[in-house]
Design a protein around this nucleic acid. Structure first.
Length: 916
RNA sequence: GGGCGAUUAACUCAGCGGUAGAGUGCUACCUUCACACGGUAGAAGUCAGAGGUUCGAGUCCUCUAUCGCCCACCA
């Protein structure tokens, strides 16, 4: 059996990732310990909607969360990540309708037309099949979609506690929803009333202000004459002539001289011949249009306000599907746009249309279906927000919740300052039914979780249930405490509330984030989370938003299968700079698949050589590395004199461990990922592994210390630990292949940082850098001389005796890394043809003719560069203000730099002169 | 109408007060026994423009230009 066949050369994630994903779930690895002696860290997932499967944005969100969860867990904290899903009332209902429609009309072609047709047909069939049957279909859909979401999360490696999975329509959760509704109603914070709401004629439900998007559209401003009863006319300007059918007044500004005599007079509304008054109201802007406004109280929020002040009739002229009602007389039954055309035609015919102007207007559209919403007077349920907002504002202002990045704090506060009441009822079926019955006899409103037998006031049994459901965000606002068992006083609630962190996209900050804060403070008397991190949006390579219609979506399942979860996770993490959207592409993922492959091969190399050792040597190495499963993977070696490469690598490890922890604490995922990437590839692989190669390639005798091997394994294992939160699968796999780790449970339960790792070793870093620069110079000189593949000898000269000694000590390593066959050290300088740096001259010894011209070119360029740099630093040092005001260490650094540059410059000049 | 963000190498992006960075791509060389999803070396940037603050500015301030996003009840 050869190790080479056992460990494939190319890493294939598909052969290990599903395995570990399953193991982690089956072993219930990520249930929190509940250990009260440990700090706890809790987070509830932003529950994905059960509308389908997860998209790449979820994957980013879950990757970020998982990185933090794994990191905290490895730090020994009692970590809870609670998973679950949201019923997503309106979104799911639409999808299910669409599905039903698709079944009925399967043969349609053309995506958007088909969607529209399916939805129409689905809605029709929903009404046909009735509430109960439709809800059955919704539950079926929920099971399917929820299962798919769970599968995807498992495949992603999300380290959640599945035993605590929740759904917003679970019976226990629904109890919490009822409880909240009942309490808020009792306190008068929920009320029923008839107001102007945003109505989507397609979805046939009211929607909240947040669910309305604004779009710029080219429109027209029409000037219409309204004749006075007793002669003359007044001209009003409107963008919506069809609403004149519902006009009950015309308003002007009280200070408007032009209309002084008009106020109080009566007009005859064109077309319908209704008599309406001219009234004066401060709201009217005399500078807009004609300064006279038609007032349609039932279909415009401003007009509604005017109507309230003046006690005007509120006449509804558009129905639930935006067709004209019987109040519209001859226009009854017409669609709103058809009615507009007809009204304009009739006005024109009557000579009442004075003129029309082009006008850009901002129009409200339903964020679900893009249908233009209609402001309609309608009876709905509302929540009073201001009393709830006040503590939520304070919580953020006083820092009980930290919002990151900080600019979202201001956005949050601005929105909260001007919050208005929330329309919480929806004319939908899928969701939490509003728990209210109204007595048909006495009108008593009864709040009850189930059907009450009879009226609590008059004992009548004519009780009419509320058929509306609650806005989906009503229930999700309770998520952080309802998932932990509220209203019961559970252990989970006591231990894990308030949660430590919430991560979400900016798009739901108001929908969800703000409302969770308000509800948490209201019902728990404590914030729902201590920090709120707003993550970026994932866009395509051209920075376009991903959308199915544009066809530029990256499907997480697809790329995961193609490149491996680890690669996708890493690509997301390293792109996730706070506050900046992510331009994502397959190429990006490919480069981190290469990284995974690099890690794999480093492991393969180490393991292959380890297995080449004889049994005895291997077990001695193993015993040095240790088995300790509690504090884990060993600790820094003690009691041995470390060789330079080890001092250096442990020093670097200490540095980046600190840097990564600091970056993660600040949600700088990109920085943390980059640090470990760079360390692993360009320090550990490029330098350390190359350096120790000869040592580990040789067989060990009984008298060998095995320290080199043990140290290599320590560093490699420590690197895997640092990598684990980012790339859980490959690290888990490789780690289990290390000696003594086969029987262990999981790397994810081990400490993040190597024990005892704290001090850095500047001297080792400096010496190592010197050797590095010599090696690079030699490679460089060889490349320039066109001797890359040849083994040549070299002479290195320096005035620094310590440096020469260092070089002598590590001569073998330098020969190996630089590809030299011999190296001679010389005190002083070397003549013509040397490769010159600030600390040494390097000369290659070879037969080949030196290309003097190329060398002259290189040196001339170098001289120019040095001259420029020198000029800059000299100028700086000549500046008295700089010397006086800059910090001492900056001045000292500049001085050192000047000296260094001067030496370098001098050498280059001399070398150039020698070349002639 | 308010507010926010972006503008850095061919592309995608980091850096946010002290000598311009990465990944990809490109050029040359290398299939040397961990890795060609690799190695070595290299070319490539008046950090959008104009002012200002500072000893010193991609980095802070102001304005301008272009692009993008969010919020908003002016018919």
């Amino acid at each position: 059996m050869s190790v080479q066949t056992e460990i494939p050369k190319v890493y294939s994630p598909e052969s290990i990732e599903p395995y570990w994903a399953r193991v982690w779930v089956e072993q219930k690895l990520y249930r929190p310990s509940g250990d009260p002696t440990r700090p706890r860290f809790s987070l509830v997932i932003p529950p994905p909607n059960v509308t389908g499967s997860l998209h790449i944005g979820h994957m980013l969100e879950h990757t970020e969360i998982d990185i933090l969860m794994r990191w905290h867990r490895m730090r020994g904290e009692d970590v809870l990540w609670l998973p679950g899903t949201d019923h997503a009332s309106i979104a799911t209902q639409m999808i299910v309708e669409q599905e039903i429609g698709r079944e009925a009309l399967p043969e349609l072609e053309g995506r958007s037309a088909a969607l529209a047709a399916w939805r129409r047909e689905g809605q029709r069939r929903r009404l046909e099949m009735g509430r109960e049957k439709f809800l059955e279909r919704c539950w079926q859909w929920k099971e399917q979609s929820g299962g798919r979401i769970r599968q995807q999360m498992e495949r992603l490696g999300a380290s959640v506690d599945w035993t605590r999975e929740r759904f917003t329509m679970d019976p226990e959760y629904s109890r919490a929803v009822f409880e909240v509704f009942a309490r808020l109603y009792k306190e008068g914070l929920i009320y029923r009333g008839t107001y102007i709401v945003n109505w989507c004629p397609r979805c046939r439900t009211a929607v909240s202000d947040l669910e309305v998007g604004h779009e710029e559209r080219a429109g027209k401003l029409w000037y219409i004459r309204y004749p006075f009863e007793d002669g003359g006319y007044i001209t009003v300007a409107t963008t919506r002539p069809e609403t004149m059918l519902g006009d009950t007044a015309v308003a002007v500004n009280p200070s408007d001289e032009r209309y002084r005599g008009a106020v109080g007079r009566r007009l005859v509304l064109p077309l319908l011949k209704r008599v309406i008054p001219v009234i004066a109201d401060e709201f009217v802007d005399p500078n807009f249009g004609t300064g006279a406004v038609k007032v349609t109280p039932a279909h415009d929020p401003n007009d509604y306000g005017i109507a309230q002040r003046h006690n005007l009739t509120k006449l509804r002229v558009l129905d639930e599907e935006a067709r004209v009602t019987e109040n519209g007389g001859p226009y009854k039954g017409m669609d709103r746009y058809k009615a507009r055309e007809q009204v304009l035609d009739d006005l024109r015919a009557g000579g009442l249309l004075e003129k029309e102007e082009e006008y850009a207007l901002s129009i409200g559209v339903c964020s679900r279906c893009k249908t233009v919403v209609e402001p309609i007077l309608s009876e709905q349920w509302f929540m009073r927000m201001q009393p709830l907002a006040e503590p939520a504002i304070r919580a953020v202002e006083e820092g009980h919740i930290r919002i990151v990045p900080e600019n979202y704090r201001k956005i949050y506060l601005d929105w909260m300052y001007s919050i208005h009441d929330w329309c919480i009822s929806r004319q939908l079926w899928w969701g939490h039914r509003i728990p209210v019955w109204t007595c048909g006899q006495c009108g008593e409103v009864i709040i009850s979780e189930g059907p009450p037998g009879s009226c609590s006031k008059c004992a009548a049994d004519d009780l009419r249930p509320e058929t509306d459901v609650l806005d989906t965000w009503f229930s999700s606002a309770l998520w952080p405490f309802a998932t932990l068992g509220w209203p019961a006083d559970t252990d989970d609630l006591r231990r894990y509330y308030p949660t430590d962190l919430m991560i979400m996209g900016f798009d739901i900050l108001f929908f969800w984030g703000a409302r969770m804060i308000m509800m948490g403070l209201k019902f728990m008397n404590e914030v729902p989370f201590r920090e709120l991190y707003i993550h970026a949006l994932v866009r395509d390579a051209e920075r376009q938003k991903m959308s199915k219609t544009k066809g530029n979506v990256i499907d997480p399942l697809e790329v995961t299968e193609k490149y491996g979860t680890d690669a996708v996770r890493f690509a997301l993490a390293i792109s996730a700079a706070p506050g900046t959207d992510i331009a994502f592409s397959n190429e990006k993922i490919e480069s981190y698949r290469a990284f995974a492959n690099k890690i794999w091969n480093a492991g393969r190399f180490i393991l292959m050589n380890l297995h080449k050792l004889d049994e005895d040597a291997r077990s001695r190495v193993a015993s040095l590395v240790g088995v300790d499963s509690e504090s884990g993977f060993g600790s820094l070696p003690t009691g041995q004199t470390l060789e330079l490469a080890n001092r250096w690598v442990f020093s670097r490890l200490a540095t980046i461990t600190g840097e990564i922890e600091r970056a993660l604490a600040d949600y700088r995922f990109h920085e943390a990922a980059y640090k470990i990437y760079h360390f692993f590839w360009h320090e550990f692989c490029d330098w350390y592994l190359e350096w120790v190669k000869p040592e580990i390639a040789r067989p060990l005798g009984p008298e060998d210390s095995c320290n080199a091997w043990a140290n290599l394994l320590r560093v490699f294992e420590a690197s895997l630990h640092l990598l684990h939160p980012f790339m859980p699968f490959i690290t888990e796999e490789l780690w289990h292949r290390l000696p003594n780790r086969v029987q262990e449970i999981s790397i994810s339960l081990r400490p993040f940082a190597l024990a005892g790792l704290q001090a850095t070793d500047p001297e080792a870093e400096k010496d190592f850098a010197s050797i590095q620069s010599l090696v690079v110079a030699a490679r460089n000189a060889k490349a320039e001389a066109g001797l890359q593949k040849e083994k040549v000898g070299a002479r290195v000269a320096s005035e620094d005796a310590a440096l020469l000694q260092l070089v002598s000590i590590h001569k073998e390593t330098v020969l190996l890394l630089a590809g030299l066959e011999s190296l001679e050290t010389v005190s002083g300088r070397i003549g013509t043809g040397a490769y010159v740096t600030s600390v040494f001259d390097l000369q290659l010894v070879h037969e080949k003719q030196v290309d003097l011209e190329a060398e002259r070119l290189r040196l001339a360029k170098e001289r120019a560069r040095l001259e420029e740099a020198l000029e800059r630093v000299r100028k700086q040092l000549e500046n008295r203000n700089f010397l006086a005001r800059a910090p001492q260490d900056v001045v000292r650094a500049a001085e050192e730099r000047r000296t260094e540059l001067e030496v370098q410059f001098q050498k280059v000049v001399e070398s150039l002169e020698r070349l002639g």
